[in-house]
């Protein structure tokens, strides 16, 4: 039985940051990330009739986005040709060195850390998308974008004490969510 429904009117507010962060941590280009997120929403709109309701709205949109990201890499790879790595050894004696180069460096944890940070970023944005709209907006502006209290209050037409109440509630909800999904 279908348990989930789609409501495209709320997609941009609820999922654009989540999808954007997911993309930028994998693509590293703001403009392309923005385009891919837009394409994802448009594709979602076109294929709404195929939605069976078995997955949540966010999972369904992420699965479309993943395909878009794969397509993007396919496209740039076919344009560039296959990547090649060449190593030139200067003398015959050092030719066997490739064996050592293939051994994993135990001190190099960059790739592992990057992967963990990507997953953490996804978990944070997933939790953020579950907050009520006002809380999510204030939390995003204050915590992620690092904007001034005064600026946010002007933008959203709220008082500073109102802002801090919203921030407090949002932080509580975020901590609860991350405790369940990450810590």
């Amino acid at each position: 039985m279908a348990e989930h429904t789609l409501n495209p009117n709320t997609w941009i507010d609820k999922y654009s940051d989540y999808l954007f962060n997911y993309t930028i941590s994998r693509i590293n280009d703001r403009e392309i990330a923005r385009d891919l997120v837009q394409e994802t929403f448009f594709a979602g709109l076109k294929s709404m009739k195929n939605f069976k309701g078995e997955a949540s709205e966010s999972t369904w949109l992420i699965s479309i986005l993943k395909r878009k990201i794969i397509d993007h890499y396919r496209k740039i790879n076919s344009a560039k040709g296959k990547a090649e790595v060449r190593i030139n050894y200067s003398d015959a004696e050092s030719e066997g060195d490739w064996l050592e180069e293939q051994v994993a460096d135990p001190f190099d944890k960059t790739a592992e850390d990057k992967l963990e940070n990507e997953e953490l970023g996804d978990a944070i944005m997933n939790c953020l998308s579950k907050l009520p709209e006002k809380q999510a907006t204030v939390f995003r502006m204050k915590t992620i974008e690092g904007l001034d209290t005064e600026f946010i209050c002007k933008e959203l037409d709220i008082t500073p004490s109102n802002l801090w109440v919203i921030v407090h509630r949002a932080r509580q909800a975020m901590a609860d969510c991350l405790e369940t999904n990450w810590f």
Binding site: P8, W11, I12, S16, D17, F20, N21, I24, S25, R34, V37, Q38, F41, F42, L45, N117, L120, G121, A123, I124, M125, R140, T143, I144, E145, E155, R171, M174, A175, L178, W182, F183
Partner: peptide
């Protein structure tokens, strides 16, 4: 702990103008 976790996640968001553009097109 929440602050440290969010810093570690290096999350990025669309800015308001990018989001508004996307909203208009959508």
């Amino acid at each position: 702990k929440l602050t440290k976790t969010i810093e570690k996640g290096h999350v990025e968001c669309m800015d308001s103008s990018e989001k508004n553009d996307l909203k208009l097109r959508f």
